[in-house]
Simulated scan of single mutants.
Amino acid sequence: MTRITVIPGDGIGPEVTEQALLVLDAFGLGLEFDVLDHVNAGTFLETGVALSDVDVERITGSAGTLLGAVGDPRAAGTRYARDVLLRLRFELDLYVNYRPVRLPDARLSPLRRAGRREIDCAVVRENTEGLYVDIGGALRSRTEAEVAVDTEVTTHLGVYRVIDYAMSVASRAVCMVDKSNAVPNGGRVWQRLWRAACAERPDLETSHLYVDVAAMRLVQDPTQFEVIVTNNSYGDILSDLAAELAGGLGMAPSVNLNPGTGFGLYEPVHGSAPDIAGTDTANPIGAVLSAALLLDQLGYRDEAAAVGAATDRAVADRRCTADIGGSLGTRAAGEAIRDLLA
């Protein structure tokens, strides 16, 4: 039996995760769910521990982890979220953040030109380096002479392996995005390894854009992209922009993945949204599609495709939540997807 660890988390996390688990259960695959419902802000505020060593052992002993959301206004600062998300990313070396983006219905696109709405691409983001490694500090804090430094880390290994993964999942085209004209040291590493990778894959259409131009091109015509590969901070920004072009963050799935071990942390992009927690209004599609990514990684490709088709049909029929034009609550929207599973 395949064991999946589940962290419902905070805010709307438990609500959307419940719907994702019900979709997984509907296939009768015999998956076992180990639910770590104590991993949340309440436990952190009580104990000072966000994720214990025992929790990490349970997670690493499973085939993958489904996460709802992490974040609570009571847990001020970034320590709580970093102690959960970044601990898992770094300790399990989940060096790829893979965010597929596909428009399920043209009415959800904010773009005015009909011929340029059909976004169907993926952002492959380096997930363990860059500006998010928390190297830096502050001098003379909270004074007019304050100096703050955050260091961006770029390594040969980190860049090589994320470009290699992006090439491996592309069938047509890969665009590498950086800002090497303004950030030259790390940029040289990205440029050198990108040129080497392109030489090894002449079958792919390869291109390079600076991040500001890439953002502009995404809005002008997202249909030109298949796979975008970039660093941690640029990938964070571009993937959110791409998600908005496909209906919003409530629809957006992701996986933090180690392609070598096959382990992944699967989570919707939307966050904990504490302002709507408990109101049965959260969109469950991001969590459901994250579960579909989990199915695909486990080898259940037909089931994963069926989930994608069911969510598309539910959106087209407006059997969905209000943020994407429907009138259903979270639970009813999840039920609609299950009803449409082929």
Rank of each mutant, 00 (worst) to 15 (best):
I228Q: 06
A50N: 06
L86S: 08
Y165M: 11
A122R: 05
D275F: 00
L94R: 02
L340T: 07
M1N: 05
V16S: 04
A336C: 07
T47D: 06
D203F: 06
A148M: 03
E267Q: 15
D34P: 04
Y266S: 09
R319L: 15
L218G: 04
D10M: 11
E32Q: 14
L245K: 04
T151W: 00
S254K: 05
C175Y: 05
L24Y: 02
T330M: 01
D203I: 00
E91G: 01
L295G: 00
G28K: 10
F27N: 09
G64S: 08
A173H: 12
L86A: 10
Q220V: 09
V219L: 12
L86T: 06
R89I: 06
A166Y: 06
D312K: 09
I4S: 11
T65K: 04
L108T: 05
A309R: 15
D221E: 12
E46L: 11
L209N: 01
G264V: 09
G64I: 04
D221V: 07
D280C: 10
P8Q: 11
R172D: 14
D105V: 09
S239D: 06
Y95D: 02
S141Q: 08
G329P: 11
G264Y: 00
D150E: 15
Y132H: 07
R102C: 07
A310V: 12
D150W: 00
